[in-house]
Amino acid sequence: MLDKAHQSIANAPLFSELVRKRNKFALMLSITMLVVYYAFVLFASTDPTGFAVAIGDGTKIPVGLIAGWAIQLFAFLLTGIYVYRANTEFDAMNKAIIEEATR
């Protein structure tokens, strides 16, 4: 069913390594994001007064507001981490796989 290039990729150990590494990494980051986000959702829905506690003396800024913004920043950082590793390590592996297969 597969043509020569696809068959050669299917058989390449480097391809299984790439898929394994990348999927594991992506899954790990996804779970991290979900855990952090649902911890926040739980925090807000079960402890509204805790959410409103000030971050320090002499200010009214609530913990929940900073936590929410921190999650937004965290989401951005996670995309940065993924893009960095994908652009360097994964892309290099991918390039090698394609070159090998289409030679």
């Binding site: 980051l29 994001m33 986000y37 507001l65 929410g68 913004w69 999650i71 937004q72 989401a75």
Partner: peptide
């Protein structure tokens, strides 16, 4: 902010 955090986390996924 409860809403905006939710709207942001879909993007990394």
């Amino acid at each position: 902010v409860f809403y905006t955090a939710g709207w942001t986390v879909g993007w990394p996924l």
